[in-house]
Design a protein around this nucleic acid. Structure first.
Length: 594
RNA sequence: GCGCCCAUAGCUCAACCGGAUAGAGCAUCCGCCUUCUAAGCGGACGGUUGCAGGUUCGAGUCCUGCUGGGCGCGCCA
C-alpha cells in the first residue's frame, strides 16, 4: 500500500515513459499552489531542456498519457510546464479508508531493516545534567524511536562519561577538602580498611551537590596550575589501574550521579536500552592498544602514543587520535575507539549514530578515521549526527539570569509550574484528581520543552526563550496536545451516545485537506529518517494538528447527519491515531484531558 | 592563522533533486464562544532571503568574492 504521492509518481512516470522520456521525471510532489492542485509534477521542464523542446508541449504529451486515470479529477498544465494534478473525492476517500485500516497509519517500513545503535544523551558522572543535555537526549530519543518504527533493530546507549581526567580531578578535589574521605581512600589503597566502612564514609561525606560544586573549581585549577593538573592525571591513571581506594570513591561518584540522572531522564520520557559507560570498555583498552601496536599503527609523539589520521587531499591537518597520554591514561578518543570494538562484538551494528553536539565534529572525524584505519569500521558505518547549541536570548549558550548554567531538572520544574498555572487559569482539570492533574501538567510541560526543540532542524543553534513558553499558544507542543484532546473528547461523547465510526467519504474542502495531510505522514517520516532530523516529523505533526483544527471548525461531527457523522468520526479518530503516533515518535505523550 | 557552520518578516524558526505568489508561530490590528474544549478559528499588516558578481529558461537553494556572527584546532569530555 503506497501513499498518493508514490502512486501518482508511478502513473506519471509511466506517462513519461510512454512519451519516450525517462520515467524518473514523473516524480510528483505535493502542490506548491494548493489553490490550483493537490499534487504537481515538474518533470516536463528538465525533459524539455534535454530534448531542446517546448516544455508545455512535452507536458501536453505526458498529460495525454494520463487520460483515463480515475483517481484524477483534473489535470492541467500551468506556467512554463508544470503538470497540476487534482484528485477525485473518491480517490481521497479510498486513501483515507486505507490509512484508517492500517495499523501503521500509512507509514511504510524500510525495505531492508538494519541494526542501528544510537549513542545519545551523553551524561557525565559527577555533573548534573544541564540544558545542553536536553537536545542530546530528546533528539537522540526521537531518532531512536523513528528508526525503530520504520523497522530497524535499534539500541539506544547513554554512553556515560565516567572514566577520564575529570575523575582524577574530582578524586583530588574531594580528598583535599574532606580529610575523612582522604583517610578512607588511603586506607583502602594500603589494604588496611574494610570497604563497607569506607563506603559509608563516602556516603556521609560526599553528595552530588559537593561534586557539582567542586568540579568547576578543580577544572579551572587544572587549567592554570600545571602541578595540580599533573596530579589529577596521575590520579586518573591510578583509577584506571584500579587502585582500590580510588576505585571505590569513583564508584560512589557514579552512584550518587545515577540517582539524579535517572530522575531527569525519566521525567523527559527518555529511556536507554544500554546504560554503558566509558569504564565498561576499560578492560578492552589494553588488548586494543596491543593490537594497534602490533599492526604498526601507533606512533610515539611527545611522550604520547597516537594514530595519525590525515589523508591526501585534506584541506587542513587534522590532529591525530591520542590513544595513550604521556601519563599512560586512556583518553576520550581511546574509550570511543574501544567502545566501537565493544559494540562490534556485542551488537554488530550496521550503523552507529552519535547524537552529539556539533562542536565535536572534528573529534568524531578523527575517531572514525582511526577506526577505519584499524579495521574496526567500514566507510559510512559510523556517523556523527551533530546538533547546534541552545542559546539564550542574547545569542550565547543558555544561562540563567544569575549567569549560571541552568540545570535540566530546574528547567523541567519551571515549565511544569507554568503548565499547572495555565491549567488553573483555564479552569481545566477541576474534575481531575490531584494525581491525574499533576500528570497532565507534566505532559504539557514535556510537550512544550520537546516540541520547542524538535521543531528546529537539529544542525542549527536556536534561541530558547523561557518566557515564550508561558503562553503555550501557537506552534507549541501544548497546541498539538490540545488538538488530540479535542478529538478524545468527541470520541468520549460518541461512545456515551452510542455513535459509531463508519466508512469515510470525503466531500468538504477541509476533509480533503485533512486526508492529504494524513497521506503525507510516510514522506515526513522518510525525511526524518534519511536526514536523522525529527523536525520533519514535528512539522508534519503540527500541520496535521492545524489542519484538523480547521476541519474541526468547519465540519461539525456530532450534529451532522448519520452517514456524514460516522465518516467524520472515523476521520477524526484516524487523525488522532496518526497524531499520537507522530507525537510518540517525538517522545511526546498526550493526556486525555487538558 | 587555518578549517567548519550560519545569515530568510520587528522577534523565533520552516522551505521536499534548483521551479509558480518564499511559508508558520509570536508581536500589532480587526472579526468569531445560545453548536463537538477559544491553549481555538477566520482576516489584515509585515520580505531587494546579509552584500556584490556568476551559472541557468528559472536561484533562499549551486559557484566565486566580501561583510557580520558562532564554533573547532594534541594529552578535558
Amino acid at each position: 500500500m503506497s501513499d498518493l504521492k508514490r502512486g501518482l509518481s508511478e502513473a506519471v512516470g509511466t506517462a513519461f515513459a510512454a512519451a519516450g522520456l525517462p520515467a524518473e521525471l514523473g516524480r510528483v510532489t505535493p502542490s506548491d499552489r494548493p489553490d490550483l492542485a493537490d499534487f504537481q509534477c515538474n518533470g516536463a521542464l528538465p525533459a524539455a531542456k534535454r530534448a531542446r523542446r517546448n516544455p508545455r508541449e512535452v507536458a501536453a504529451e505526458v498529460v495525454a498519457g494520463l487520460a483515463g486515470d480515475t483517481r484524477l479529477a483534473g489535470v492541467e498544465i500551468a506556467g512554463p510546464g508544470f503538470i497540476n494534478l487534482k484528485l477525485s473525492d473518491a480517490a481521497l476517500s479510498q486513501r483515507a479508508r486505507e490509512i484508517a485500516a492500517d495499523p501503521r497509519l500509512g507509514a511504510e517500513p524500510v525495505a531492508a531493516p538494519r541494526r542501528v545503535l544510537v549513542d545519545y544523551g551523553g551524561p557525565n558522572v559527577a555533573k548534573p545534567m544541564h540544558v545542553g543535555h536536553l537536545r542530546a537526549s530528546i533528539i537522540g530519543e526521537s531518532i531512536k524511536r523513528i528508526y525503530r518504527f520504520r523497522g530497524d533493530t535499534v539500541v539506544g546507549d547513554a554512553h556515560f562519561g565516567d572514566w577520564g581526567y575529570q575523575m582524577g580531578l574530582l578524586i583530588g578535589a574531594v580528598t583535599d577538602e574532606k580529610p575523612a574521605v582522604k583517610q578512607a581512600v588511603d586506607a583502602l589503597n594500603a589494604g588496611e580498611a574494610v570497604e563497607a566502612e569506607a563506603l559509608a564514609t563516602f556516603e556521609r561525606e560526599v553528595s552530588l551537590a559537593d561534586l557539582d560544586r567542586l568540579y568547576p573549581e578543580a577544572a579551572a585549577r587544572g587549567k592554570s596550575e600545571p602541578d595540580y593538573r599533573d596530579r589529577a592525571r596521575r590520579l586518573t591513571a591510578e583509577l584506571q589501574a584500579r587502585k582500590a581506594g580510588h576505585f571505590a570513591l569513583w564508584g560512589h561518584f557514579a552512584k550518587v550521579t545515577q540517582v539524579a540522572l535517572e530522575r531527569d531522564f525519566h521525567a523527559l520520557g527518555v529511556d536507554f536500552d544500554l546504560w554503558k559507560g566509558e569504564s565498561d570498555v576499560d578492560e578492552l583498552i589494553a588488548p586494543m592498544v596491543e593490537e594497534l601496536d602490533a599492526k604498526g599503527l601507533l606512533v610515539d609523539d611527545q611522550g604520547a602514543r597516537i594514530i595519525r589520521v590525515t589523508r591526501q587531499g585534506d584541506k587542513r591537518e587534522l590532529p591525530p587520535l591520542l590513544v595513550v597520554s604521556s601519563e599512560g591514561s586512556a583518553m576520550y578518543g581511546t574509550t570511543d575507539l574501544a567502545t566501537i570494538v565493544d559494540r562490534n562484538a556485542t551488537f554488530g551494528p550496521d550503523q552507529v549514530l552519535y547524537v552529539v553536539d556539533q562542536r565535536q565534529a572534528d573529534h568524531f572525524e578523527i575517531v572514525f578515521r582511526a577506526a577505519q584505519i584499524a579495521g574496526y569500521a567500514a566507510e559510512g558505518q559510523l556517523e556523527h549526527v551533530g546538533f547546534g547549541t541552545m542559546n539564550g536570548t542574547d545569542g550565547k549558550p543558555f544561562k540563567t539570569r544569575e549567569g549560571g548554567v541552568l540545570k535540566l531538572n530546574d528547567m523541567i520544574v519551571m515549565t511544569r509550574d507554568k503548565a499547572r498555572e495555565r491549567l488553573h487559569e483555564a479552569g481545566l482539570g477541576a474534575e481531575l484528581d490531584p494525581e491525574a492533574f499533576e500528570e497532565t501538567a507534566h505532559k504539557v510541560a514535556v510537550a512544550a520543552l520537546k516540541f520547542a526543540d524538535l521543531q528546529n532542524f537539529r544542525g542549527t543553534s536556536y534561541v530558547f526563550d523561557l518566557d515564550r513558553f508561558s503562553s503555550f499558544e501557537g506552534k507549541t507542543g501544548p497546541y498539538l496536545l490540545y488538538q488530540a484532546v479535542r478529538v478524545k473528547s468527541i470520541l468520549r461523547r460518541a461512545a456515551d451516545e452510542g455513535v459509531e465510526a463508519g466508512e469515510i467519504t470525503i466531500s468538504e474542502p477541509a476533509e480533503r485537506d485533512l486526508v492529504l495531510l494524513l497521506d503525507a505522514f510516510d514522506q515526513a517520516l522518510a525525511d526524518a529518517y534519511d536526514k536523522k532530523a525529527p523536525n520533519f516529523l514535528a512539522e508534519h505533526a503540527y500541520k496535521l494538528a492545524q489542519t484538523f483544527s480547521k476541519f474541526y471548525a468547519a465540519c461539525p461531527i456530532m450534529t451532522a447527519e448519520p452517514t456524514v457523522r460516522a465518516s467524520r468520526l472515523a476521520l477524526a479518530q484516524t487523525t488522532l491515531r496518526q497524531l499520537e503516533q507522530a507525537l510518540d515518535l517525538l517522545g511526546i505523550e498526550a493526556p486525555d484531558r487538558m
